[in-house]
Design a protein around this nucleic acid. Structure first.
Lengths: 294, 294
DNA sequence: GGTTTTCTGTGCATCAATGCACAAGGAGGC
DNA sequence: GCCTCCTTGTGCATTGATGCACAGAAAACC
């Protein structure tokens, strides 16, 4: 049953009873309609219509086709209105991805977004691998640093994550708290194991302290935070994660050079939709309220 | 939502994930597939797919289309198999039409046909107006006499209905029973009111008796039979209707010149189908068993 | 890292589907 | 009974869709 257009033509003929009427509705010449019917009947091997001077009367097979195509047309009409509408409505899925480090910053934003637009189902994906927007894996990605500029992606700055040097209270009790960089010698530090990390504070730390002062390193950011909290050494944490934790002591206050920019990345095709725009507005509005951000 | 073929193309792309794969399945060039998708998206005003080097990933709208078109394809496949099969199977409706006069001759034939092919729903239509086969009003028509030869209709002789002159016993008791045509003067007759009737016995009667001898006339054949039974006069009846009726007395035995031929008429398009052929075979077989027919 | 494969995308030539004009035939109205 | 309108049906010209060839890019594989 290839060639769905011929079925649509036959449907209109069965519905209206005449070739001429179907041709007018379909916006084609009546000769085209006749040829479609002839081709369809030839392929099916049985007559769909009784031809006579007043028009075409559907046979039993033609009435069967009429019923099936009727529902098909309705289904397609509903589909079209759904698709046409969904670019302009805020509903359906919204897939957001980000690095795990800012998950607790974003979660309340997305919860309130979902409350504001109840028709939206929010999916928040965090994973080690970078989700690819051009594969349609997510509508919006929250990325850190100045990553590669891919074409077809529109990038907007969101906020600057402020970071500071912290130590666990247990560490301070054992080794003291250096008041400034001059007092770093003899202290132990926690740093990313990835030499090519783009995080500016980790690059600063590697450049500032001796390699043997890095007592603990890990690839996973969450593991680094755990290490600092466990007293393994002095390490960087984002201010918003450290704030309000009584077990942490601030060693050095945040500096502008340690800040890492947070970018919003969307695919150009999806960027224009109302759903994505609504989320971007909501996200930027929420980011203004973020404390601990530059 | 015009152009169902483009929906079918988009369906295959959504199903397979690549333009090339869809093109192969559809048996067209991949450029055609791309153009179909582009046209469909442009008309819908929103993207159905995310394009990338590995293929096309359906968006939410594309997945919606996939689901709708999936069921459509299945529906069309079922439709096609039904239509292809129904020309070769004996099932569905069988619409038979005839003059009312032979209804009680045909009814047992059609009942046994329905018992032989339980999937067939028989519709037996009798009406004053002649049903038109070329309008698809019936599959098979049983007609009397040598009616107009319409093109596209295949005509086959079925049987010859024998007719004889009868009178009600009540009539004979009052007026006697003429032994031959010579004794007709003084008797009363029942005849069709239609001067142009094609029934040969009515033409014979009008030519044989005086006009004022026709005491009762009617257009409806059934009314004529009722009149004869009620004793209004001597009249023609088909042998099969009169037989076994103790209230009727045969006035003159059947003659060949009074016989009217019964024809089977079918439309040429439907004549070839197994369903109609099966009925024709069944009908002719039953007609062989008909007594009282020439 | 280089090579191969696979996929998309586009300009150009071709072909088939479409539109047009006209014929024929039946139905309905005056 | 004649005329008119509406319908189907077909040969021919045209246009629009299709196929082809090639480019380019990304992924996979050795």
């Amino acid at each position: 049953m290839e060639n769905w257009d011929e079925i649509r033509t036959a449907f209109q003929v069965a519905r209206l009873g005449t070739v001429s009427g179907a041709a007018e509705v379909l916006g084609v010449h009546h000769a085209t309609v006749i040829r479609h019917i002839d081709a369809l009947e030839k392929r099916l091997g049985s007559k769909l219509f009784q031809r006579h001077a007043r028009g075409y009367t559907p046979t039993e097979a033609g009435r069967d086709l009429l019923a099936v195509a009727q529902t098909t047309e309705e289904q397609f009409a509903h589909l079209a209105s759904r698709i046409k509408g969904q670019g302009e409505t805020v509903s359906g899925e919204l897939v957001v991805t980000s690095i795990a480090g800012v998950a607790d910053l974003l979660t309340p934003v997305m919860v309130s977004f979902q409350e504001k637009w109840p028709d939206v189902r929010v999916r928040f994906l965090t994973d080690m691998r970078v989700f690819r927007l051009d594969y349609g894996e997510a509508h919006v990605a929250i990325r850190a640093g100045a990553g590669p500029e891919e074409p077809d992606n529109v990038v907007q700055p969101l906020a600057r994550i402020r970071a500071a040097l912290y130590a666990a209270r247990s560490y301070v009790d054992r080794f003291g708290r250096p008041g400034s960089e001059e007092e770093f010698p003899g202290h132990r530090f926690v740093c990313s194991d990835n030499e090519t990390t783009r995080a500016p504070f980790h690059r600063w730390l590697r450049a500032t302290v001796q390699p043997d002062q890095i007592a603990y390193s890990a690839t996973e950011p969450a593991a680094l935070e755990e290490a600092v909290l466990a007293g393994a050494g002095i390490g960087f944490m984002s201010v918003f994660r450290a704030a309000g934790n009584p077990d942490l002591v601030e060693v050095l206050p945040p500096r502008a050079e340690w800040e890492s920019p947070l970018r919003i990345v969307t695919h150009v095709d999806l960027h224009r939709t109302r759903k994505v725009q609504a989320f971007l507005v909501h996200l930027k509005e929420a980011a203004k309220e973020w404390k601990f951000c530059g």
